[in-house]
Every structure is written in structure tokens, then in C-alpha cells.
Design a protein around this nucleic acid. Sequence first.
DNA 1: TTGCAGGTACGCT
DNA 2: AGCGTACCTGCA
Length: 273
Amino acid sequence: MIVLNTKNFSLSQTLECGQIFRFEKIKENEYFLQTRDIVARVFQENEKLYIEATNENIDFWKNFFDLDTNYSEIMNFFTKDEKMKEIIKYGCGIHILRQDFEEMLISFIMSQNKQIPQIKQCINLFCEKYGEKITVFDKVFSTFPKLNFTPTLEGLKECKVGFRDKYILDAMEKYNEGFFDGIKILSEEEQREKLLKIKGIGEKVCNCILLFGLARTNKFPVDVWIKKTMQKLYFDDKETKNEIIMEKAKELFSPYQGFAQQYIYFAGIMKKI
DNA sequence: TTGCAGGTACGCT
DNA sequence: AGCGTACCTGCA
């Protein structure tokens, strides 16, 4: 068990704002959480975060929960905009997790599925089929597999990913051809170009992978929730193209667009806006 | 029951 | 260049 000190951090807000899919609530402020092949039981009490995990490397978890970033500074930046000042009140404990690139790649291709429960199901089926079983806390978990294999379309169909089966196959074939080798050290523009070459990755999914899997925190993925909420906030509730919404976000939120996106998403799903 | 939602590809104009 | 529809699945 490790104990970390946190500031401006809420475990529940951070997990429940749509950036991570493999977690399960045990009770208030306590969750099972999985990333890659790691299983953790995480508990927050006041400003302390308790982590019991198959990997208890402190630096890993500090990085994963982004505990060294100064969120007061970021939130302070947003207070210059009256509307954002309201928005950040709802999710002021959100951190942007630094998740695994491979896992984000597959998860966000699946995410053009539907609601979060369905996305979770697809990922869990994928892990059950291709990952390894591991028993921790008297419970069986499945790890997220290394991507060094090529699945069949039939196998992927069993994960209920629907028509995204060929997209995932495309991504994994390219992955195994070394297409993504060294992606972490490329420039953001180069990373973006590579991602967009994969079938099934368009602007939105690309931005999610950049933001959550490659720590590009100035990206602003626009999904239906963000679109609705942004329209209400800045466009007089009128139908507005994603392109225009992204321009507005850039103008208002740079260099912290990713954080803004999370706060807005959270406020939006809380139906407060 | 039908039909809709989710993001992208693809075919049409 | 922009628009409409297909893709698959679960759920109202």
C-alpha cells in the first residue's frame, strides 16, 4: 500500500469524467482500477490517496494521476472567463490521467460505440479474450494485452465492437508493422498525422488519444456532450460546426484546452449547464 | 416493434 | 468542397 498526498484532486471526479474505462466503484471514494496489466484498489480520504496495487511504484502512480501538475494555476487561468469560472466549480478535482498509449488507441477506436457502459463492455471483452487472467483482492481481473498479435475479425466480433472490428484490426496491423514505434518522441503534429492514417480514427478519436494517451493537454476533443455544452455556453444554443467550436476553444483555453474540455464535459454530464 | 445514438468512411452531388 | 447514408449494437 502506498499513500500519496494530493491537492485539488478528486478520485471520483477524475475517474468518472469519461477519460478512463477500466474501473469499478466499490463504495464511496473507493475503486478497483486497471491500467495495462496493473490492478489497483484505490481509496481517497481527504487529501490522501491510498493505493494497493500489483505495481506500487510511487513515481508511476504520481505520473498516472498527474499529481505533480499545478491545477490551481490552471483553474486560475480559466477564471478570467466568467462562464468557465462557473464550470470549473463542478469538477474542480478532475485530473487528466496519463494513461497507456496502446490502451487508449484501442479504447478510443471502440469509443465511437455509444454510451460509456457499452464501451466498457467492449474493452472488458477484449481484455478477457486477449489479456491474461490475474487474481487480486480475491477477484479475477483480465489485463489489457500487449498488442503484439494480430486478431481475427471473428475474434474481434466477439468483443461486440460491431463495425469497428476492421478499424481495430487496421490499427493492430499497423502497430505490428512498427508504424507506431517511437511515437512518444515525435512532435504533436507527427503523432496526429500517424493516428489519422488509421481507419476509424478521425478528428475526435485522434484528439482523445493525443490527450489521454500521449499527454497532449492542449487538445480539445469534441463529442456530442462537449458540442451541446459549448453551444449553450458560447453560441446562443445554436447548431454550430465542430470546427467552429474548436476555434473558440483554442481562442479561450489555450494552452490548457484539454483541461477545459474535461471540466466542461463533467459539468455537462452533471446536467448543471 | 422500430428507430435512434455514437464517430468515421465512403459515395454522391 | 460539403452532405447524406451505412456501419453494428443495445436500449428506449
